[in-house]
Each structure stands twice: as structure tokens, then as C-alpha cells.
């Protein structure tokens, strides 16, 4: 449904600055009816990719087809089948819920009666708030309105840019449950960017990008299993010294993320004995040690070396193996770059 081929976008540099590449030969193929989550650290090119897909930015090179239509040749055809939920509110706060819905329907050449306003709001908490002004709605309800107005025209493709940013956990969960339920019911193709990995757990595929390139693209379970079932996480008083000691004494190559050392890809039976050995040898140097199940966030940290306050790994991690290319890089034929 969404085919992105060798997409490159380079921003012209401001005065005395060199041009800044935001996307480099980026490939991605999202199947019809698929729920795909796109993630990456700040500055990884997610927003640029999103703006290109919305047709608001013309890339330096590459092609994008959505629903079989070339985005750059027939953008209006693509817009007809695409709904976009932006990170910032894109509704008129001086208008009521109903007026915003009617306006949006009109922009797609439909009357609100024809598209069924009541039906469009059925799944939301806005059913009885048609006449309420948007500036009096809570953040969660405003996001529901954003989604409802996009779904009003029954798009085949839905693009969402961090749609839950600014929402409290309960509203976030509520929003995502609604989104997933509608996506399944309508077999809609969804591409959503997010920083929150809990939101990616139920996606069909997760795409991780960095520096404008695709690092990984696979199902959440494959991504997690590629990290090994468990990892031992050690917080020492001197990470560099302990990393060196582990290398010399035990031939282990821990990854360093900030103050943490991680021993990834450890089997269930070995993790406990490894933890006991480390504790027995280096107890005085260790603040804490834990055995952890690999989560999507760990995959993200491993690949990008980014998390809150975490620096890129110092030791050689080597590329993760299983399925990390997924469909994303099939066409590029280039090796996946991982943080080395």
C-alpha cells in the first residue's frame, strides 16, 4: 500500500552551514491493512519522512507510491485516500466539534450528513458534545476529534505523527485501543511514528531509523527475540573499569549505555549463573545488577544508542541477526548499519 524507494531528502544549509541530509536512500514497503510503527531518536528523519508522505515536502530523490498512486505526480489522488493525524492539533478551536467535522468533510467534497457524523463519532466520547467548542475539550478528547475527523472520509491509509504526545497514560491507552480496533475493523493501512515503545508492541511491524536510514524493520516479537531472551544489566561504580575486567577475566563484551553495562543475548539458564559469578567477583564495584527480559525499548537502545540520558554503546555490539532487515531494506541491497 505504501512503497518508499530510495527516498533521500537533504535540507539546504542555512547561512554558512552545510546541507543537512535527513533521509538517505530510505526504503520501506507497508502492506495493505498493516499497522506499522516508525520510531527513532530525535533527528533520525521521522518527521521529514512524515512530511514527505503527507505531500508537504518534496524530497531530493526517490519515489513514494501510496495506494498505487505516485505521491509526487498525482498528490491529490493520494490525498483522497489518506488521512493524516498531526502531532500538534489541526482543528479549529473556535469551532464546535460538529463544525470541525463538517468543515473537514467539505474539504474532501462531502457533506457531513452524507458521511454520517453520528456514526463517525460513535466510538468516541464526543457523541454528546457536537455543539461544544474545541477549546473547551480536554487533551484526550481533542485527540479523539483529530482521529474522528480523519476517519470521517474512510481513508485507506492513515498517517499519524506521535498522536499520543501530551496525553496522560490512561488517555493514551484509550486512544490506541480505539485506533487499533478501527484499524482492524476497516483493514486500514496505518503508519504511525512514536517514541513510546509500549505503543509499538501491538503493531504488525516496527521500523527503527537513525540518521535518515533504516536500522531495523520486523515484527515486535522478532525484534525482541533477536536480542536474546534475557540480558544481565549491571550498574557499576566505574563502568569502564568493570567492562575491562569482564573482558579480561571472563571474555565478555558488555555494551555500555550511560552508567549501565549490558550483557545481551544471554540464555535463561546462563543468566542466573552469570549474575552470580559477576556478583561474587565484583560485588564491591557494583551498585545493582538485574536480569531483564529484552523489550522493544532495549532493541531501540541497542540499535540507536539513544534513550533518556544514555550514550551510544562503547564496545562492539555487532549487527543483530534475525530478520532485522525485514521488508524495509529488501530493495536497497545494502547492509544494515548498526551502532558499532
Amino acid at each position: 500500500m505504501i512503497k518508499i524507494r530510495r527516498l533521500t531528502h537533504v535540507y539546504p544549509g542555512a547561512r554558512r552551514q552545510t546541507p543537512r541530509p535527513a533521509l538517505l536512500h530510505f526504503n520501506l514497503h507497508v502492506e495493505e491493512g498493516e499497522f506499522c510503527v516508525l520510531s527513532g531518536p530525535n533527528g533520525s528523519g521521522k518527521s521529514t519522512l512524515f512530511h514527505v508522505l503527507c505531500g508537504m515536502l518534496l524530497p531530493s530523490a526517490g519515489s513514494v507510491t501510496i495506494g498505487g498512486y505516485d505521491l509526487f505526480r498525482v498528490p491529490r489522488m493520494v490525498r483522497r485516500i489518506t488521512g493524516v493525524v498531526f502531532q500538534s492539533p489541526a482543528v479549529d478551536k473556535y469551532l464546535s466539534v460538529g463544525e470541525n467535522m463538517a468543515l473537514y468533510a467539505a474539504l474532501y467534497g462531502r457533506s457531513s450528513k452524507a458521511v454520517g457524523l453520528a456514526e463517525a463519532l460513535e466510538w468516541t466520547d464526543l457523541k454528546n458534545r457536537l455543539h461544544q467548542r474545541v477549546n473547551t475539550l480536554s487533551g484526550g478528547l481533542a485527540r479523539q476529534l483529530e482521529l474522528a475527523k480523519c476517519l470521517l472520509t474512510r481513508p485507506k491509509v492513515l498517517l499519524l505523527d506521535e498522536p499520543t504526545s501530551g496525553l496522560d497514560p490512561a488517555s493514551r491507552r484509550n486512544f490506541l485501543e480505539m485506533l487499533k480496533s478501527i484499524q482492524r475493523k476497516r483493514a486500514m493501512t496505518v503508519l504511525m511514528t512514536t517514541h513510546i515503545f509500549a505503543e509499538a508492541e501491538e503493531a504488525h511491524r516496527v521500523v527503527i531509523m537513525k540518521d535518515g536510514q533504516l536500522l531495523a524493520c520486523d515484527t515486535p516479537s522478532h525484534l525482541r527475540s533477536s536480542m536474546g531472551r534475557e540480558m544481565v544489566v549491571v550498574v557499576p561504580s566505574n563502568p569502564e573499569a568493570l567492562a575491562l575486567a569482564l573482558k579480561q577475566d571472563m571474555d565478555l563484551n558488555p555494551l555500555r549505555f550511560g552508567d549501565e553495562l549490558r550483557l545481551e543475548n544471554v540464555g535463561t539458564t546462563e543468566s542466573l549463573s552469570l549474575l552470580e559469578t559477576i556478583l561474587s567477583r565484583y560485588r564491591s564495584q557494583i551498585h545493582s545488577v538485574a536480569i531483564k527480559q529484552a523489550a522493544l525499548e532495549d532493541v531501540f537502545i541497542h540499535l540507536t544508542g539513544h534513550s533518556a540520558g544514555i550514550h551510544p554503546p562503547h564496545s562492539d555490539s555487532g549487527p543483530l541477526e534475525s530478520g532485522f532487515l525485514g521488508k524495509g531494506n529488501e530493495e536497497s541491497g545494502r547492509p544494515v548499519e548498526t551502532e558499532q
Partner: peptide
């Protein structure tokens, strides 16, 4: 600034 223009620009209108 308030984001409304975005939703107009991505609509299938000239």
C-alpha cells in the same frame, strides 16, 4: 501556528 493549516494543506483540494 495553531496547526489548522496543516489539515487544509493535506486535503485533496487545489
Amino acid at each position: 501556528d495553531q496547526g489548522f493549516l496543516q489539515s487544509v494543506l493535506v486535503a485533496p483540494i487545489s
